[in-house]
């Protein structure tokens, strides 16, 4: 039972962590992107659509190309967002909300246009689990850690990569400077807007990938609201993780566990007397408790959400 719950925890945590890592970089650079949910749904749709059309040619490769499409569609949407907030200086929160509305509307229209109004519940080729030789046959740990999908491995390997990039490279430090004191960064020759733009695009790419995870790794189906708030949860994971990749990873795992455990408890017939709302509430209660009790004061980058103007 514990083994199963931990497996499920990883499955829940992966898309959240993917989005959170991208958003973390963007927020470190001083841009808050509320439009992650929209980028995810667009990524889920274009990825699924890509796999749908390519699977006839190469069903093994199709989902991967699809996921890449998903990431690229996230980049395009992030490009629109970035242009608006960085150069046209629109309010970041309002623009992000607009991006969400745009993405959900666009996806609904395209989906109905292509597959008919009531949808066909079509299935596509999806990514198969990758069992890592030797390690996957280790008892207990094997099935949990080494019988997952390639995208799961990539996501968790991205955590140390982002950590190293952000804290131990010249680029990473420049990003942090943009988020804390963009004027100072500018005076030492960092081109603030371009660097912020790159971070926003990266965030869009990760959100698009996470969307692809939902429709091409998790299940072979697409539905126009399948993201179900994950983009917003990722935003809170960034805060929860204090803008630090390793802590964000911990937050994503905790949130995954807080979903996986109640799911498993709901399935026990003898616990049927407990109202299901209690189980559904657990992740949020747990988040609140941890935030209040253990995380302490979280300080966002000083210039977060402030448009940078050169004087």
């Amino acid at each position: 039972m514990i083994e199963y719950i931990l497996e499920a925890t990883l499955r829940y945590a992966t898309p959240l962590l993917l989005v959170a890592l991208g958003e973390l970089i963007a927020e470190r650079a001083g841009v808050i992107n509320i439009g992650l949910e929209g980028m995810m749904i667009l990524g889920a749709f274009t990825g699924w659509l890509g796999s749908f059309y390519i699977q006839g040619m190469n069903p093994g490769l199709a989902p991967w190309i699809g996921i890449l499409f998903g990431g690229l569609s996230g980049v395009i949407l992030a490009g629109i967002f970035g242009t608006l907030v960085l150069w046209l200086k629109t309010d970041q929160v309002v623009t992000g909300t607009g991006i969400n509305l745009l993405a959900f509307g666009l996806v609904e229209v395209l989906y109905r246009r292509i597959f008919g109004a009531t949808g066909d519940a079509l299935k596509v080729a999806i990514v198969q689990p990758l069992h890592i030789p030797l390690l996957s046959s280790v008892p207990f740990i094997g099935p949990i850690l080494f019988q997952q999908n390639l995208l799961v491995y990539i996501t968790f390997l991205a955590v140390p990569a982002v950590y190293f990039y952000l804290f131990h490279t010249h680029h990473g430090l420049a990003i942090q400077a943009c988020g804390e004191h963009p004027k100072a960064a500018d005076t030492v020759g960092v081109s603030v807007l371009w660097l912020q733009a790159k971070c926003v695009l990266f965030g869009g790419f990760m959100a698009g990938l996470a969307g692809g995870y939902l429709s091409l790794v998790d299940v072979p189906f697409f539905s126009t609201e399948m993201t179900a708030g994950r983009g917003f949860i990722a935003l809170s994971i960034v805060i929860f993780g204090k803008w630090h990749p390793v802590k964000a990873c911990g937050a994503a795992l905790l949130f995954g566990l807080a979903n996986a455990l109640p799911d498993r408890l709901q399935a026990i017939a003898d616990l049927g007397f407990i109202p299901y709302q209690f189980f559904l509430m657990l992740p949020y209660v747990l988040t609140l408790l941890v935030l209040a009790g253990f995380v302490g004061h979280a300080r966002p980058p000083a210039a977060l959400a402030l448009p940078y103007r050169r004087e």
Binding site: Y4, L214, V219, A228, D263, Q266, A267, A269, G272, Y276
Partner: peptide
């Protein structure tokens, strides 16, 4: 009888996890 609820009508991934559980 085990009965589980998703909490909404859209979250395919959650319904999958409930079924696996």
């Amino acid at each position: 009888i085990s009965s589980s609820y998703v909490g909404d009508w859209e979250n395919i991934g959650k319904a999958k996890e409930l079924a696996l559980s």
